[in-house]
Design a protein around this nucleic acid. Structure first.
Lengths: 203, 203
DNA sequence: ATATAAAACCGACCAACAGTCGAAAAATGA
DNA sequence: TCATTTTTCGACTGTTGGTCGGTTTTATAT
């Protein structure tokens, strides 16, 4: 019972590394088991399929990021600072930069999509609580906060996806839209510009 | 030179039918060539890969829809009616309903994504012209129209994707957001509700 | 008509891959 | 010690996308 858990974790970590360096589609189960030094049957003793492995890898990746984001919520930062902090904590870590690049290649669409879906589920509630605080403090004026936050996430995810460089016009419109979605005064969300800039710098 | 073109079209149409009924991932090249009654080599004489075939199929599908949408532009309908007409003309045709359902299954993500990307490229310019007319007529008040239209497309694509039923709150927020993105009076875009409703009915 | 070149076609073959299975080895408990 | 469960093994299968050398058909020029 103890040994099995360890092995499973090992395999997830090996798969994670391989997915990061080669991409999901370009990593075969054979490579995973060779790296781990085990037989095919052993792999399938722990995982039903290759896709299940992908899900477990993603879960591991995002759980850590969600915890960091959650922590930001309980600080005494200002609402805009919290938002920056939450978004920063879900930026792919240094080692995951490669994966994030590979994600935009068509052969990794499946992985990309799964990550995005799960990321939204994890992060929308957290960001929503920050936004709620913004409403309480009179910074934002709106109802249906989770729906609105989700919209903003979808927009940012699709527009600043990496493969298309963000034009100034796009960024302006995005900031304007964000403010209007949340019912904020013009200029309130200007700090987003810094986030986008930073994200592009490290790319 | 003439014969080759015909054969290629035939193959695209056969592939289209198979992709529609079985989905992209679940259709093998072998099935296509069997249906067509040709040898493997002939297929690869016309197409470099299976994925290239997918692209040609999508191009064929969307080109027709884009033409319909374009036609709406040159009518004397009101701006809201034009928008409705354009969106309606890109709704998947009856025969494509199956494909559209299959699209949401993880194994067809690639196809789904390619269609979405190409659809945006084709439809954003058309919708933008309708929106421009709206600005001229004093219905909307905004700049950077293509960027704004693209945002609305992204939002609608991601939020009303079929697999998640649209809640009343989501629809309300979406309409509210749409109006704000385009700088329209509250209520102006209420007609969208009808479109969403209709889209769900036929599903 | 005949020779030549280009276009279209063939199907056996290959390598890669996800997943299966029955049996063996190791761990566990009585 | 013996039985039972957990874990491990690796040969095997079936499907798939794609290749390749060669053949037939079609168009062109002489």
């Amino acid at each position: 019972m103890k040994k099995g858990e360890k092995r499973k974790l090992d395999l997830i970590q090996i798969a994670y590394r391989l997915f990061v360096s080669r991409g999901y589609e370009h990593t075969s189960v054979d490579e995973i088991i060779e790296e781990a030094g085990i037989a095919k049957g052993t792999y399938y003793y722990y995982f039903q399929s290759k896709e299940q492995m992908l899900e477990e890898v993603i879960e591991m990746m995002l759980q850590a990021e969600a915890e960091k984001a959650e922590a930001v919520l309980h600080t005494d930062l200002s609402v805009p600072q919290k938002i920056v902090g939450i978004i920063a904590s879900i930026q792919p870590a240094q080692e995951e930069r490669t994966i994030d690049n590979a994600l935009h290649q068509p052969e990794n669409i499946l992985m990309h999509n799964k990550i995005k879906g799960r990321l939204y589920d994890l992060i929308v509630p957290i960001l929503s609580r920050a936004a709620e605080e913004g409403v309480e403090k009179g910074l934002f004026h709106c109802d249906n906060i989770p729906e609105r936050v989700r919209m903003i996430m979808i927009l940012s995810g699709d527009m600043f996806d990496g493969h298309v460089p963000a034009t100034p016009a796009t960024i302006d419109v995005f900031i304007d839209t964000t403010e209007k979605i949340l019912g904020a005064e013009p200029g309130t969300m200007g700090f987003i510009r810094g986030l986008i800039q930073h994200a592009e710098d490290i790319q």
